[in-house]
Design a protein around this nucleic acid. Structure first.
Lengths: 108, 108
DNA sequence: ATCTAGGCATAGAAAATCTAGGCCTTGGAA
DNA sequence: TTCCAAGGCCTAGATTTTCTATGCCTAGAT
């Protein structure tokens, strides 16, 4: 988990989270995560698009083709109701597990 | 990452951490992580032992056969110098990445 | 005309984890 | 005495996720 990498298992949650306020296209999702994390996180496209495919299949997001601000053909992803539910659930789990990890790191 | 699961990518760090104060055998490592995390984390044996093997190969731990408190033949794992270095490095990375994740979760 | 940045996507390899087993021993209960 | 639960170590194979590397296309600026 070196310099600009992600914590495995958290990418889905981050994507859902940045989609919560409104739809974004794929490229923009990666940019937003990068920017909101103060450049600490870097989402590779080879991770991003497969993740989005999985989320489409699970019914957590919908993807509508459209045109970006920069006039390019893009796919806008937006959360479904199930997606919102999933986000809550993943954030809960993450919180719980993180609490456990931090307890171990501190008390050991 | 449901009920009693681990955050992928953090198991090695947790193992190194609980070994920092002194050697433990495998079974005890799992117990200690479970207990220190207030039962939030559950290390499966099928994850634990392969992880220990990897760490042996990388030279982060040494394993000496011995006898447990309960009079069973066990393998005590202890950190090497490289292992201590690795732990510091993983904790640093984890901290940085976690900061990024939390920034995204909060600001999005 | 060409180049760069924006944009979507897949294939294949690599890594980590889980499930599900196997095997052995100790000590206490029946 | 026998048997069983708990303590222990470990592996095989499937699954999942991520990364690297690639391919392809377009808009707009030089």
């Amino acid at each position: 988990m070196a310099k600009n990498e992600m914590l495995p298992g958290t990418l889905g949650m981050l994507i859902l989270r940045v989609l919560q306020p409104g739809a974004l296209h794929g490229y923009a999702i990666a940019q937003r995560i990068h920017q909101l994390s103060n450049e600490l996180l870097q989402v590779e496209e080879g991770s991003l698009y497969p993740a989005l495919q999985r989320m489409l299949l699970k019914g957590w997001v919908l993807g509508d083709w459209g045109v970006s601000e920069t006039n390019r053909k893009v796919r806008f992803y937006r959360l479904t109701t199930a997606g919102r539910r999933q986000l809550q659930s993943e954030m809960n789990d993450f919180d719980r597990v993180l609490t456990g990890i931090q307890a171990v790191l501190e008390k050991a």
